[in-house]
Nucleic acid binder design. Structure first.
Lengths: 228, 228
DNA sequence: CGTGATCTTGAGGGAATTCAATGTCGGTGG
DNA sequence: CCACCGACATTGAATTCCCTCAAGATCACG
């Protein structure tokens, strides 16, 4: 999530470890975060919310990983996004969720009452602006996703790996919390094509796959070139 | 130029005049123009703004149609959205446009200074909420677009036609302002596949194509079934 | 009418899917 | 400890759908 330089600290993306510390130039919202949300555990594959359910909360990933998805009437599943530690999801402006959300692995999720946020936003332009900013960030993510979906299988997989790497700063190695099926459903491919493509990239020395859930980016430049 | 910060109705949505009228060439939007911005004409295929240009304005389609798009480094073009009469586009939270925008046909576009809107929003929760709502609407559109892009060619074309029909209320017939190439680049298909698919749908009696830019939905239910 | 742009149709090829089988890993119990 | 099991991943072969390349057809416009 990118914030403009003039934007105050984001009450959502604030690391939990520093939440209690007094922060210079921060509005008195640090503690509000603590008050707003309870942390709940979710087991692997547990549903966090379902499509068309009332959007009573928004959610922040404390640990673990989450997928949002829709299922078409013939069973095809499209994953809308993956959310990792620190990410906020489930923010809706309508009153129902437009996707379902599930825990990819065992998770701890902070639940924040939507009504509380809306009330806060009506009194604080900062909070209102943050809500808007988060929606805009989701929009940019969705637009980037669209650009991925029109590409070839190699380009999609390369793009996915670069995206995941960008979210794991300071490392050229990615630990994937999600299965091949999840990746396939995110990229609009089949599991077999994802697997084959990873093998191709490995043979081309662009990546290494020491274990199925760990990918080492040996040649990020080559992946970027594929990323069009 | 002075606007009441307390105005309760949506400053973007055109009031009564556009509702049931059969597309006027010179719409009556007197006071809105004075309040919000200047109307500018754009010729067919003219650029309205370019990707990465500063987002100084937001835009409202008075007449005509607009496409937003990105071009990949190998020349592939992806159209992000089509905007028709009444639609607002170019709303960004960052300070540059993330897509380019072009007139599909000769257009009249109302330009609204972004700084004006931001200033208004800082004083009016209604305006701030409207900006947020518009961003959220764009997000939902992008998510629906993602769901389109994972489907078969028939499903994409059917979905596109239903989408266009839904934006032309009270009619089962659609006048397409855009070319086959535009449709193809929106749906992630080739122009030939779009053309062939339309022919298939016509042969299946789902649609009629009296002229290349006019599509009659003979069997919307069949199209919806294809829409998964 | 010509001319260019747009659209449609046809034939062949290629990328991804489908169907099917094999391989690998982590856990559980003998 | 290792044998077994189920879940997940990889690999192979055949098919399908869409793309590419190519040729006509239609339309708008001078």
């Amino acid at each position: 999530m990118h914030l403009q330089a003039t934007t105050p600290r984001n009450v959502f993306t604030q690391p939990a470890s520093r939440a209690a510390r007094p922060v210079p130039q921060a509005p008195a919202l640090g503690e509000t975060v603590e008050m707003m949300g309870a942390v709940m555990p979710f087991a692997r594959n547990a549903e966090i919310y379902g499509e068309n359910e009332p959007a009573e909360y928004l959610y922040r990933v404390i640990s673990g990983a989450v997928r949002t998805y829709k299922v078409l009437n013939d069973g095809r599943r499209q994953i809308g996004a993956f959310y990792l530690t620190g990410d906020v999801f489930g923010l809706e402006i309508g009153d129902v969720h437009s996707f379902s959300a599930e825990a990819i692995a065992d998770c701890k999720i902070m639940l924040i009452k939507r009504s509380t946020m809306v009330a806060l936003a009506s009194r604080s332009h900062d909070v209102a602006h943050q809500l808007w900013t988060m929606t805009a960030a989701e929009l940019q993510r969705a637009q980037a996703h669209i650009m991925l979906l029109i590409k070839t299988a190699q380009e999609r997989v390369a793009g996915f790996l670069l995206e995941m790497a960008a979210r794991t700063p300071g490392s050229t190695s990615v630990e994937l919390p999600m299965s091949r099926q999840d990746i396939a459903d995110y990229l609009g491919l089949t599991i077999e094509t994802v697997s084959r493509t990873l093998t191709q990239l490995e043979n081309a020395a662009a990546i290494a796959v020491p274990s199925s859930r760990r990918i080492v980016l040996r040649n990020p430049a080559a992946l970027s070139r594929l990323n069009a």
